[in-house]
Design a protein around this nucleic acid. Structure first.
Length: 373
RNA sequence: GGACGGUUACCCAAGUGGCCAACGGGGUCUGACUGUAAAUCAGAUGGCAGGAGCCUUCGGAGGUUCGAAUCCUUCACCGUCCA
């Protein structure tokens, strides 16, 4: 269990397999995010049709509601939300960052003011492990401190705390059927990243994650940091770049040896009326689509593009119909899931270098889908 | 025929002498979104410039005033009531 096999390699890019109790992850892979035990606006059947393999959920949110013990009583997260494939739960570490207004950090852990009812809640490495064991995902994440990458003193303190917490997570973890991934922090500081990657690599964990990126830093910083970290993380373990989510970042990530991605972007953009296409974005709310008979992308094979026009989707958006969110979520997730699958095929076929170069060039040109009519 | 009340920007609707190009809401348009406090948030919405600049507006016409969406006269239309 939790064996990582590299099937092919091209440059730093890899195609691999990671066995979990709920199936084999074929990488590179993009994972949709289902924070509250649901990928917003989609049913598990729709996710399956999309070819989704790994789905994320969230410790902090499920801890607050409905409660991890309730989920355990209901048979665990897989049974509860009826997702049969591999699952990953985030530890609540990102909420340390995103809910910074209503939390307080100390060496032992973090106290949050619940965003739901204002009551104080406590999260620590041990509590996060306990919650994630109750939830029962295949991959569980170490409780880390994701911090603003631009303040280097804060970043250093956060990184050191993240390391100390990782040791505690490892110690507190009891279930053997869950893989604990450690998280590399260190902001955009190369020395800190090296220190963090070395430390995390030394613990013999089944997989490694890169956190604290795509939180406002420049692309240059992000890609350089990936280079620094992946030069240290061992080749024989999966690498998970947390929270990354644009087509460009997926390609740049795979080029640098990343295997797993997750992001809220496709589903959030979908609810905010924006379609992600291979090389650009389309705001379907724009007036220019009101009489556009084309699908979002005539080249796209997703359900939405097989059936519906831009004009119809724009109508749904303007009428505030929730089907708009569903159709756009299907399309956006398809874009990233199929991109990851194509990259995998290209690596296996030995054509990834030219595939990536061509795709990045078109992204750089912001190439819109070609219309048929 | 008479008595009141009303007519404000795409729609609804505030404003009853200067702080009014005119509150607010809707609609419309545009932008943002990367381990989800996000079916959210921000901006624009008379015209032209596109920094705090100019021009044309508050049913029509005329008038009072230094100054009018706001006061007066008159016309038109709408509503309620009385004949």
């Amino acid at each position: 269990m939790f064996e990582w096999n590299t099937l092919a390699r091209q440059g730093k890019a890899r195609a691999g397999e990671f066995a979990t109790p709920h199936g084999i992850l074929k990488t590179p892979v993009f994972a949709p995010v289902g924070t509250q035990a649901t990928v917003k606006s989609l049913t598990p059947a729709q996710l399956e049709d999309l070819g989704a393999s790994l789905v994320l959920s969230n410790t902090y949110h499920l801890f607050l509601r409905p409660g991890d013990e309730l989920v355990a009583e209901m048979g665990g997260l897989h049974q509860f939300m009826q997702w049969k494939g591999p699952m990953l739960t985030d530890s609540g570490g990102f909420q340390v960052f995103s809910l910074s207004e209503i939390r307080k950090i100390d060496e032992d852990g973090v106290s949050f003011k619940s965003h739901i009812d204002g009551s104080m809640k406590r999260l620590s490495p041990e509590i996060s492990m306990q919650i994630q064991e109750n939830l029962g995902a295949d991959i569980i994440m170490a409780f880390d401190e994701c911090s603003d990458p631009t303040h280097s003193e804060i970043t250093q303190a956060a990184m050191r705390r993240t390391h100390a917490w990782l040791l505690r997570c490892q110690k507190a973890k009891k279930r053997a059927d869950q893989a604990l991934f450690g998280i590399v922090q260190g902001g955009v500081n190369d020395q800190l990243r090296e220190e963090s990657a070395s430390f995390v690599s030394s613990l013999d964990l089944p997989g490694h994650a890169i956190g604290g990126l795509s939180v406002g830093e420049s692309k240059t910083d992000m890609y350089r940091t990936l280079d620094v970290v992946n030069a240290i993380l061992p080749e024989n373990k999966p690498r998970y770049l947390m929270g990354v989510g644009t087509t460009q970042d997926l390609i740049e990530g795979v080029l640098r040896g990343v295997d797993i991605f997750d992001c809220v972007l496709p589903t959030r953009l979908a609810r905010h009326n924006t379609a992600m296409t291979r090389y650009s974005r389309l705001n379907l709310q724009n007036a220019c689509y009101s009489r556009d008979e084309n699908p979002i992308d005539p080249q796209c094979s997703c359900y939405t593009c097989q059936c519906f026009s831009r004009a119809y989707i724009r109508h749904l958006i303007n009428a505030k119909e929730m089907l708009a969110a569903t159709l756009l979520s299907i399309h956006n997730l398809h874009t990233l899931i199929s991109l990851a699958a194509e990259m995998r095929q290209a690596i296996l076929a030995g054509s990834f270098e030219s595939y990536a170069r061509d795709a990045l060039q078109k992204i750089h040109e912001n190439k819109k889908p070609e219309k048929v009519k």
